[in-house]
Amino acid sequence: MDRLFAACGGLAAFFLAAICVLVLAQVVGRLMGVAIPSADEFAGYCLSASSFLALGYALRKNHHIRVTLLLDRLPRARRRVAEALCVVGGLAVSLFITVNTAEMVYYSVTFGDLTQGLVPIPLWIPQSGMMIGVTVLTLAFLADALRMLRGLDPVYLSGGPGRDTDVSQEV
């Protein structure tokens, strides 16, 4: 399971680097008098893929922002109840997003929609990055919900913000 989230995180990082390469190619191409067709559009699709594919990875690393001021003051038992509510809520909302994204991609396939830029490609291809990303986020919440049923703490609680860097230790 952990490998799935890490792999998606790595893929997201790859797409982030791809944005940079595409944009640079466009700049260099223009200097040499060559237009790279749809470079800006594809950079946008890479951005979308990067943002969504990282969702599950970012949740487990606790990158996603929340306000814990009140939660931190709760006694341990109540804190667990509150975290359980959050995980269930997160599962519900991310499932809702996933189902509707699936429907959107399904329509893109059945309508045969194409992208509107210079290089037409089937719309479902760039949209599938979003589809996979929100599905993985749902799985991440599901995994945490199952952990809580077994009496464990959700994974995101152990990966604090900045804890994979040294910033928080220095502050």
């Binding site: 466009q26 223009r30 008098g33 060559v34 237009a35 790279i36 067709p37 749809s38 470079a39 800006d40 830029g117 210079l118």
Partner: peptide
Amino acid sequence: KGVKFRTYNSATASMAELMGAVPTIVE
């Protein structure tokens, strides 16, 4: 010839090419 010509779709891009201009994409 060689003028950097802002285009916004495939039609304008091929027109720029046929004119000898350099099709350039800018939002």
